[in-house]
């Protein structure tokens, strides 16, 4: 078991190196960082001097090696165009994104799992039709637009909630968390429904019923116990994506998370910030997904057995 865990962690390293290289390569195409730093009026000599000083004349692979070396050994992602540490800036923003992701995910689970169970239990009844219609509508609504509409209603017209920023604690969080939760909840509702339906038809539920197990326990213990595994997979993927930054919603509500940090950096041609931000996010997402994967081993006896077999 632990051998397998170790193997998975070791395997992550080359994947992270490669993916960060891809990002590094793509971002090297954005333009000349020296130009971005000195502005349009810089002379060719000034530019050339700065390039030499920044090591921009070295081959790509050398620059990447130096970059990743600094990241790994010094936790240094370089400086952005305003000479601020990319790492510090990123770390200052990360808690906000984690905060948003957690609350959003909590809302998603709170809304979607019960609704999905109801839809499955009441299959082909009006509850099911209503919930399925709501779910597909929720999947189809652009979350940033929903955010804008809710902002107009609850922040501008009713003034119940702040329009943007993070100064008002939980109040500031309500709208962004809700907007990011809606499409996710819609997806999980559908998923819970179909996963539950699979289990509801399973033979072992018939066995349980034949034992005299009551309907409530049939649904919550026997069916949900089996249906929850794919649901958790999806939710953890969604959580990973949220940690990657709800780029648009964060921007709409000026939520100071990593998503809006990266988007603003792209707009400002703040290349180092974009590179560092994306690489850091990728690493975090990969670690979360790995943790989730390993968590399954403890949840599902079948998977556990597979791992132990290895």
């Amino acid at each position: 078991m632990w051998k397998y865990v170790l193997k998975r962690i070791l395997f992550l390293i080359p994947i992270m190196l490669l993916s960060s290289f891809i990002v590094f390569y793509l971002m090297s195409l954005t333009g000349d960082p020296a130009q971005a730093k000195l502005g349009e009026d810089a002379t060719e000599e000034q530019l050339e001097m700065l390039r030499e000083q920044m090591g921009l004349n070295d081959p790509l692979i050398v620059r990447y090696g130096r970059y990743i070396g600094n990241v790994v050994f010094h936790g240094d992602l370089g400086k952005d165009i305003w000479d601020k540490s990319v790492f510090d800036e990123y770390m200052a923003r990360l808690p906000y994104t984690i905060y948003l992701a957690c609350v959003s995910m909590f809302l998603t689970a709170l809304i979607s799992v019960p609704l999905g169970i109801i839809a499955a239990v009441r299959q082909n009844k009006w509850e099911d039709f209503t919930l399925s219609a709501l779910a597909i509508a929720g999947m189809s609504i652009p979350n940033f637009w929903l955010g804008l509409l809710l902002m107009i209603k609850f922040a501008l017209q009713l003034s119940w909630l702040p329009t943007s920023g993070a100064e008002n604690g939980i109040l500031s969080l309500i709208l962004p968390a809700f907007c990011t939760a809606v499409p996710n909840a819609a997806l999980i509702t559908r998923m819970t429904r179909s996963s539950m339906l699979d289990c509801i038809r399973a033979d072992y539920l018939r066995t349980a019923r034949a034992k005299g197990v009551k309907e409530g326990r049939i649904v919550l213990k026997h069916a949900l116990g089996n249906a929850i595994i794919p649901i958790l997979t999806s939710m953890s993927n969604q959580f990973a994506i949220l940690i990657g930054g709800s780029v648009v919603v964060e921007t709409v509500f000026a939520w100071p998370g990593v998503g809006s940090l990266i988007i603003n950096a792209v707009k400002a041609k703040n290349t180092n910030m974009v590179t560092g931000g994306i690489i850091m996010t990728t690493v975090f997402v990969a670690i979360i997904l790995l943790l989730v994967d390993l968590l399954y081993a403890f949840l599902d006896p079948r998977i556990k057995a597979q791992y132990q077999g290895k």
Binding site: A202, D203, Y204, R206, T207, A208, A210, K211, H222, G225, N226, D300, P301, R302
Partner: peptide
């Protein structure tokens, strides 16, 4: 009480 046809699927895999 009842015994079912297919023992492969009639037991709950996570209990």
């Amino acid at each position: 009480a009842m015994i079912f046809q297919d023992p492969m699927t009639s037991l709950n895999p996570v209990m």
